[in-house]
Design a protein around this nucleic acid. Structure first.
Lengths: 218, 218
DNA sequence: ACTTACAAACAGTCAAGCCTGTTTTTTGAA
DNA sequence: TTCAAAAAACAGGCTTGACTGTTTGTAAGT
């Protein structure tokens, strides 16, 4: 009965160490940048030896790639949960824009900005990442499609609107780096965009169903 | 071996060497990435010795910072020229969206993606870059304002629309790295966006003297 | 016993900054 | 005008430091 974790199986040890290393990698990518995300630093931040890292991952690229996949998987699951709740209670399209901003601003796109340049120049790394990102995009598309079904809008058009929203947010976040201390600018852009999105989201006051759970899971 | 047998002044030699080094730096940033943009590589690509580089620039960060400033200055001047021509002949708002895309896609934002992460983590580098970027943004704003005056639209609102356009394009270009071979996706987004922008640009045919482009009403 | 999980030292590589030497241009006084 | 000293523009080597991949050693789990 290892309730307090005195004796752990090898699988458990391995899984936790891997998780600690991947979390440390994402933390480091966000806080220090890819260039400063060295294997000694990752190991140090994860509280394990560098030998442990080399045991679990083939090398620097491998652990970064795995960590990114882990991060995107979590983000996709979070978005999915948000969409479930959103559709259950019938929120406003403004919320979606706000969620997109918060999701990307909450480290996701800052971390992305770290590895995108490397992916652009390193074919092996890029090849590793493309399937991961494709799956993430598929997850997004599924959510947008469900949203369209819920709102009764054209799925293709809805996906375009939401993808544009994501791109807008990406561009805005990239600006925050060298255009800091200008909240009015970003508020203005988000406000403008919410107004635009509303036009494409009649978002019928389905709030009448508030309180009812899953209506139809296409 | 002298180009035309003439003696060149020190200012000329210095200016040309600096320009060669800065151009090589941007080329390298775009083609190889920031991490691979080393001072030996820059010198080799510029066809000068590393000593020449250290003579003209205080160090690696300094030459990169100077090169970026040079690049942004050129881009701002190009945009200004485009706007002059655009206003003289009275183009469609679609053209502006297309120009924004072309400008950013033509290395500008790919190079930006290289140094943004470094700027985010290196306070000195960021402090060096912020004034440069602020000036670039001021140049953009001036163009948008002139455009608003020409179109008879509200300057503030026009700036918001155009800044949103820039952000959208930034986000789209960042996607191209890990979402390649999907021209329909980008075409779709740009087409959708042009449609949105048209709503905010009556773009009165006031001076529509010259042959107008496609202005399909969707 | 045998494998897995980890620890730690090792070796090769390479860029950044520094420093010294060499060539080209400018300066200023005879 | 001449021409040598000063200054600027370059060339190239040396040192240090840090990171990656690898290998060897050890304890824990099955």
């Amino acid at each position: 009965m290892r309730v307090s974790g005195k004796r752990r199986s090898q699988k458990e040890r391995s899984a936790e160490t891997s998780a600690r290393l991947m979390n440390a990698t994402i933390d480091l990518l966000h806080d220090q940048g890819l260039a400063r995300t060295t294997t000694p630093e990752i190991a140090r931040m994860a509280g394990v030896s560098r030998g442990a890292l080399t045991h679990h991952f083939a090398g620097r690229e491998a652990i970064i790639s795995a960590s990114v996949a882990d991060m995107l998987g979590k983000a996709a699951r979070d978005l999915h949960r948000f969409a479930e709740d959103f559709m259950a209670r019938g929120g406003s399209s403004d919320e979606i824009v706000d969620y997109a901003w918060r999701m990307m601003d909450d480290r996701l796109f800052y971390v992305t900005m770290e590895y995108l340049p490397e992916a652009r120049h390193n074919p092996a790394f890029r090849a590793d990442l493309i399937p991961t990102v494709k799956e993430f995009h598929a997850g997004l598309d599924a959510v947008w499609t469900a949203l369209a079904a819920r709102a009764g809008t054209d799925p293709d058009h809805t996906r375009t609107v939401m993808n544009a929203t994501m791109c807008l947010v990406r561009g805005m976040i990239s600006q925050t780096v060298l255009r800091p201390n200008d909240p009015a600018y970003y508020e203005g852009l988000l406000g403008f965009w919410k107004q635009q999105v509303r036009q494409h989201f009649p978002m019928k006051p389905a709030a009448a169903l508030t309180g009812r759970r899953k209506t139809a899971t296409a």
